[in-house]
Nucleic acid binder design. Structure first.
Lengths: 96, 96
DNA sequence: TTGACAGGCAAGTGACGAATTGCATATCAT
DNA sequence: ATGATATGCAATTCGTCACTTGCCTGTCAA
């Protein structure tokens, strides 16, 4: 389990999370074309693959292999650690 | 206004946020000693000062100068953009 | 005024990471 | 089987960033 904060540090990986939120369970090539089309990100397939590895090792993306295709799914639960670490206590103070 | 995600990407800056959450309004030297004492972080004063600059330009830390002392205050509101970007829509789906 | 204290500026170094390039592997259709 | 599709592995380059070092500026007390 790698660092969640490091995973969302770069704009490319955040764009990948956005793309997966728009449509979950996409393959690598689908993510590539979506990034170039809607996000104006022209990256190599290998670059995006490496980004997906980082996101997966951080627990933000889970994969499911079927034949020669690999589908990627978004999982935002690791991001809740950020809320628990800093935001939650502040909200308690606001609520009183 | 710099990148919030880049600001919380490194462990040192996250430790600074933790230190400020334990006790708000500390000076640079207080933050330094707290990091070395409780967080096992041995960094130069200049290094922490640069980290504070990054955190301030990201809107996570606000400062107030009084004489030769500079007090640092924590502001977690920029972190809520993370919740709004990925967590909120998921929570809506869970609620139905 | 002199020294101590709190902080700032700037250049330099070292290392890590983002991205590319090239080749390799596995699966499916014809 | 053969070519096309979908992905994986590995080495390399390049830039950026974290951190240090050295020196400087401003503030307060004796």
């Amino acid at each position: 389990m790698a660092d969640v904060f490091e995973a969302i540090a770069t704009p490319a990986r955040r764009a990948i999370l956005d793309v997966l939120r728009e449509r979950d369970g996409q393959t690598l090539f689908e993510i590539c074309s979506r990034l170039t089309m809607t996000k104006n990100l022209t990256l190599t397939r290998q670059a995006i693959s490496q980004h997906l590895d980082v996101l997966e090792s951080a627990g933000l993306v889970s994969t499911k292999r079927e034949g020669r295709c690999k589908y990627h799914f978004l999982d935002t639960t690791p991001l809740e650690s950020i809320v628990e670490r800093w935001l939650s206590p502040n909200r308690k103070r606001k609520e009183r």
